[in-house]
Design a protein around this nucleic acid. Structure first.
Lengths: 200, 200
DNA sequence: ATATCTGACATACGGTCCGTATGTCAATTG
DNA sequence: CAATTGACATACGGACCGTATGTCAGATAT
């Protein structure tokens, strides 16, 4: 055996545990997920878990941070593609709805996260996805395209609307039929934030 | 002792357990609430609980149904006071924000409810509060005041926006300073649903 | 190179909690 | 008044979390 560095294996184990936790939390939910089972799936025990993450909620926080980061990354990609900030905001809203359709995202970040870790704005990951929205909103307000409302308020309202729309779509019998209705309503709602005399 | 009717005492015990559960769930959250402790607080044991509600989630469902019903009742009261349906919708949104500021409502109905009972539209209480919003939206669309978007989509987006705004306000350092920003942004957003050429 | 030490992880244990199976007694019924 | 029902208490088994202790590979010092 090649004598491996301690730091290396430790990082590997952290990665293993987080990926196992993503699967377990998404499948059973945080409360029903067994730490014994979860760690055994990657050939470890709870000893590794409590040493690396402190407690069960610590592991959830790590998983949430990872998924939240991926969501922000994807949101920024889509925002960069749009021809202007306003289109980018709508695209990001649609992207948020789409992301919330992913069972892993929905269960871990949108349901168990707030329930067991508290308000998302207090998370270490700082609600990365919302932060992206807020920056776009700030620019739109500064450019006079949007009404001069509070930027954080607007960002939270938009993401909240998209979130609930996504939960509705995901739980519906025919998601593909409901999705366009949700996006249409979202875009209609968003126009309420446009400054007067500046349609489209 | 006056020989009490069985039905009477049973109903009393159900009421006792539900009110104790409201307190416990609001204070500790559903997952951390102990059924032994909860039942002992009202002079009963888990025997009574499992006989009346089946399991722990059954008790949560009963509590959610009660709180959700109270929310719908309050929303209808406020909607009836407004001079017209549109003003009623805005008033209801503000009311939803206000209700979500109640720790009991926030913890039980908005966080633990969706996390442990699944999608609110599938609840036995049939998401009573959302149903009220949907009816108002339907009338506004029929009267041509609102854009002809899907009524359920609009209702969910509005309530979702209000909900997240409320969570934000509640978690903020200075709720009283943040509240008006949230309401302002909400009303601005809502105007996006108004039909063209029908301002205010 | 060898001895010592550090720390990442495994193992063992105690405490708590849930759900069920069984027991009990008051209230009802004939 | 005897029999029965059923609402609730009690007892038990299984699972799980968090911690305390043990162990051994890898790092460090001489």
């Amino acid at each position: 055996m090649t004598p491996r560095r301690r730091i290396e294996t430790m990082e590997e184990n952290r990665t293993k545990l987080i990926s196992a936790a993503r699967r377990a939390f998404a499948a059973k939910g945080f409360a029903a997920a067994s730490m014994d089972e979860l760690t055994a799936d990657v050939g470890l025990t709870r000893g590794a878990l409590y040493h690396n993450f402190g407690d069960k909620k610590g592991l959830l926080a790590a998983v949430v941070a990872q998924v939240d980061g991926e969501m922000a990354e994807r949101a920024q990609e889509l925002g960069a593609v749009a021809p202007n900030d306003w289109e980018g905001l709508l695209a990001e809203g649609s992207a948020y709805i789409e992301m919330a359709l992913d069972p892993e995202v929905r269960r871990i970040v949108l349901l168990d996260g707030p329930a067991f870790l508290g308000d998302p704005t207090q998370w270490p990951s700082q609600n990365a996805c919302l932060e992206v929205t807020k920056q776009i909103v700030s620019r739109l307000i500064a450019n006079g395209i949007m009404k001069p409302v509070d930027d954080e308020a607007a960002a939270r309202l938009l993401n909240g609307a998209a979130l609930n729309a996504a939960l509705w779509v995901a739980a519906s019998d025919e998601p593909s039929a409901v999705l366009p209705k949700a996006i249409e309503a979202f875009c209609a709602l968003a126009t309420g934030l446009l400054a007067e005399g500046k349609p489209i």
